[in-house]
Each structure stands twice: as C-alpha cells, then as structure tokens.
Design a protein around this nucleic acid. Structure first.
Lengths: 168, 168
DNA sequence: ATTTAATTGACAGTATACTGACAATATGGC
DNA sequence: GCCATATTGTCAGTATACTGTCAATTAAAT
C-alpha cells in the first residue's frame, strides 16, 4: 500500500539529494562569480588541472581521473581547445587516440586563476564555523569515496591508471 | 605574484566544489536507478511535490519554492505536461499567468513513487555510520540555508510567498 | 489617463551530464 | 593471418542549469 500521509515540502527540503543539488548550484555560482575574469568553468578548470598533472593523457583516461562522463568531456575539450588552453596531438602508436597537452596560455591561466579558485572554494564553506567546515569536508570526502561506484564514471585516480596502460 | 607550488590533483579532489559536484552526480544516479519504473527525474519529482502542495501555483512562484531557475523550469513544466502529470490553466485575473495543477495521473505517480524515492535518498547516505549521516545532513542543511542568497534563484519557502501576492 | 516600471512566460544561446549508438582501430584467441 | 572482441573518439538525443532578451500584460507614478 503506497504512502498516504499528507505531503509537505519537507519531503523535498530535507532530502539529501535536494541538498546536494542546491549546494552544487551554489558552488558553481560562487566559482563563476570569483573567476569571471578568466572565462573558465569549474569543469574546465578541473580538466586543465588534470591535463597539467598528466601531460599527454588521452580523453578516456582524463574522464577517469576527474570522474566526468566521456561524452560530456568531448565538448569540454573542444571548448578548451577553442580557447587555445590545450592542444590535441594524435598518438603515434595508436591512431584512435588523441593526446592532450597544456599550451603556454593554458599554463598561464591556471597559474593566474588559482587565488580566485581558492577564494571561491573558501566562500562555499565560509558560513560554517571552522570546526564544522572541517567536519563537513571530512564526511563529504568519505561519502564520495564510499559511493564512488554509484556514478556512471567512477573516479580512477592516477595510481590506478599507471599500470592500466592499453589493456585495462 | 601568482601561485608557483607544484600542482597536484589534490587541488581538485579536496576542493569542496568538486565534492559537491561528485555527490550530486551520485545522488542523481541513485535516484534514477531506484525510480526508473516511474519515468520521473529528481527535478520533475520536486516540481510535482511542490505543485501538489501548492495547487494553482504559477511558474515563477514555483521556481522560488524549489529554487530552480525560471528558464529551466519552463522545460520541466513542458515535460510534466507532456506526460500528463500536470495541467496548465490560464489565470482569470491575470492573462500573463498560467496556473499549475496536478492531474489524477500526477497524484497517482507521486503516491506510488514515494517508497522508491525514500530508498534512493537512504542509499545516498548509507555508507556512513548513522551518527555521521545525521551530522552531515545537519551541516548541509545549515550550509545551504546560510548560502541561500549565493545562487541565482534563492529559495523562498511557502511562508515567504503567502504575503507576496502580486506585488513582491 | 498616460507614461513608466515591473512581472510573466517564452525563447535563443551556452555549458554540463547521461544514454545509446557508430566507424575506425587495436588486441586477443586460435 | 583471421576473426571475435574491446577501445577510442564522436555523435544524436534528452534533461538540467544559467544568461540575456523579448512581447504581452499589469501595476505604479504622477
């Protein structure tokens, strides 16, 4: 027998899913506001960092390193290439693969945007007391890690990729 | 002088913004998985609940009640109307406004989907210890509330709308 | 009453996200 | 070497999200 209690908006407001969605909206808004001088979205920023850390990575592996959908990532890469923050070069030993590299402009924008990114990240948690910020961050880190397999593209960090090579 | 420390992926993985994005992805994936029998997205579910709680609400006020962008909401309403879960009727006293009502099918699907939604919401926090779930939910609720004005469409709950009428 | 403001729903444009499919290419078993 | 299989990038389709704009309509100012 289905539910028959009176439905109130609390069914929405207190649901973790709603709170995560809301916090994501807020987080993106703060990032965009702090970084508007740089023409970089949060997703593009994360992709740039990953390419900077893994020069010559390909799109599939990049998607695993930042846990983005591969289809989505294609468009992100296109935009980063259009802005000339990255360059794509065909892989010599595999003609399917295109390797990703930071351009000088890309490296420069990463260097310059850092303080604004830090400011945005700080603002997201600012309303909480310092101890609560730490607690929330710890719980969130734990939860994201433990739920890793629940999303379409689980995070596969750098270590998991090293011996992944072409076979795995 | 900009940053010059070596950049690692921790700049991404430990950032609250990244964790919120990741948790949102996971939350949506779990919702869709649990509720795939009902052809309702998390956003559509929240809109349905709000229309159920506020019969005859208009799109602008609905966007305030669930903190969704008005532009986005237009498409959501269209889809809910196409599925015949809601009906739109012109307001007699204001020819710009279209009022939103649940259909019988809409009320039925809301009634039936509840257990699956609850299951999805529970799964999001399941990996944590019960005490940690409570703590995270409390901190998140607090943070979303305190950051309310940071997003484009701040939440204006029902009380704030009652005496808002046509002049606010 | 007439001009000015604001509100409403709609639209175009951009940017994530996911599903499912595809051709080109590479790898494995045999 | 050949064939089944897997991988890679890409694309089409759907669904949030946000920015900015617009015409129609209403409300406010005077």
């Amino acid at each position: 027998m289905p539910n028959s209690k009176p439905v109130t908006m609390d069914a929405v407001y207190t649901a973790p899913g709603y709170l995560f969605r809301r916090m994501q909206q807020i987080a993106v808004a703060l990032f965009i506001e702090e970084c508007k001088a740089f023409d970089l979205t949060p997703v593009q920023y994360a992709a740039l960092i990953a390419i900077s850390t893994h020069p010559g990575i390909d799109a599939t592996r990049l998607s695993a390193v930042i846990a983005f959908d591969r289809s989505t990532l294609g468009n992100v890469i296109e935009r980063l290439e259009a802005k000339e923050f990255i360059a794509r070069k065909p892989a010599p030993e595999d003609r399917r693969v295109k390797l990703l590299y930071l351009t000088k402009a890309g490296a420069a924008v990463l260097d310059e945007i850092m303080p604004s990114v830090d400011k945005a990240q700080a603002r997201m948690l600012q309303p909480l007391k310092p101890a609560d910020r730490k607690a929330l961050l710890a719980l969130l880190t734990q939860l994201v890690d433990l739920n890793n397999e629940a999303s379409r593209v689980p995070l596969r960090a750098e270590d998991a990729l090293e011996h992944l090579g072409r076979s795995g």
